[in-house]
Amino acid sequence: MPSPTSAIVAVGAHLPTGIRTTEQTERRLRDENPGRGLPVGLIRRMTGVDRVHEREPGEQASDLAAHAARRALADSPEPVDLLIFASASQDLIEPATAHIVADRLGLDVPVFDVKNACNSVLNAVQVAHAMIVSGQARRVLIASGETPTSAVRWRLADRHQFVRSFPGYTMSDAGAALVLEAATAGGCGIVDLAFSAASHHWRIGTLPTGGSMHPRDPEATYFDIDGRGLQRAFLALGPELITDLLARRGVALADVDLVLMHQVAEPHLAPIAERLGLGVERILPTVAEHGNLASATLPIQLRRALDDGLVSPGSLVLLVGLAGGISLGAALVRL
């Protein structure tokens, strides 16, 4: 009897129409910090990001997730029996944001949240796949709503604070959704997944608010990230997670039709891709046009690749996730 697996049968993306250009970001920083001598053009030169997406006032992470989920469910309207909200963002500490998304969608199914910074969606795929293969679910909706623009620091105490806040200026709000359902191995579906972590790096990038360390500190509501340290940490990772994943499935990198990879800054893309054993020419670039989309990056890239005809049913796609903490993940998927 063929082995069970799960397949991605629908992909939804929601990019807010509100746009903040990098020039507007720098202008606001200069206006709110007169006399600090903030350099003109630095963000664009250092990151390659032209613009970011901003949600409407009053929109929550659950709203962005629900927008994307409706699009995914319109493409695959059969009932789901589980909803996973997967995001670095959340509406509230409690209850799980998945409940709010389910309420917005009118769903009466079990729900829970999965959170692992920018790998939240990829880890949710891991969980959904395991639950489908084990028979605990048949069709799973994964919905993500990212609202990192809430944590951008505009008023700066000094240059050091500007440097630690820098990665936040290129982060975008976004929504994304996937529907996974039971399938038979050998056709379309999740071929394999692999994950690793180097958790001693957790201090490199934080958003401290709301936890037991900083329950009520207003200063903890902003990103505090060592951007160069984060890049060095990822460059210290070897290619083994990805090369081993491909090897155990007898797949050569040349057999992969497209690589989708989380992107923080354009100059970081090539060195990290090469360190992981991936040719940058195989990677779909999105960070210049859309900024850092956090955990929504991979499904939004997949939606774009499908819409642009870069992949189609039968294509073999490698999804590569990078996240603060730090963690690395990969999923080999036959569409």
Rank of each mutant, 00 (worst) to 15 (best):
R232M: 14
M131H: 07
M261R: 06
L293T: 03
S144E: 08
L319V: 09
E274G: 05
L246A: 05
V179P: 14
V121L: 11
A137G: 05
A270T: 14
T209M: 12
L245Y: 00
S134Y: 03
H268C: 15
L237K: 10
G238P: 11
L241P: 12
V80T: 11
A220H: 05
D158A: 03
A194M: 01
E78R: 11
I225H: 06
M131I: 00
D158R: 03
S199L: 15
A296S: 14
T25A: 05
D113R: 03
D158P: 10
A254Y: 01
D217M: 08
R334V: 01
F223H: 09
A7Y: 00
P2C: 11
A72T: 01
L180M: 00
A185M: 09
A124Q: 00
G41S: 06
V125F: 05
I132G: 07
S295I: 05
M213S: 15
E219D: 15
H290A: 10
G135C: 07
L318S: 04
T184M: 12
A128F: 07
G205N: 12
S172C: 03
R36Q: 15
L319M: 15
D113N: 09
G18V: 03
V191C: 10
V49H: 02
D224G: 03
L269W: 08
I84S: 01
V311C: 13
R28Y: 03
V152T: 15
A331L: 10
I8Q: 02
A102K: 01
T5N: 02
A10M: 08
T184Q: 13
V317S: 04
A86R: 00
T47R: 03
P271W: 00
R282A: 14
T221I: 06
Y169C: 05
L141T: 10
A68D: 09
L235E: 07
S312R: 15
P215E: 02
S172G: 04
L335D: 00
L64I: 04
S120A: 11
L306K: 08
T5W: 03
P208C: 07
L245P: 00
V317M: 06
G175K: 06
R216C: 14
T97P: 09
V11S: 11
F162Q: 12
T22K: 02
D255N: 02
F162E: 13
D103Y: 01
N119M: 14
T17G: 13
A247Q: 11
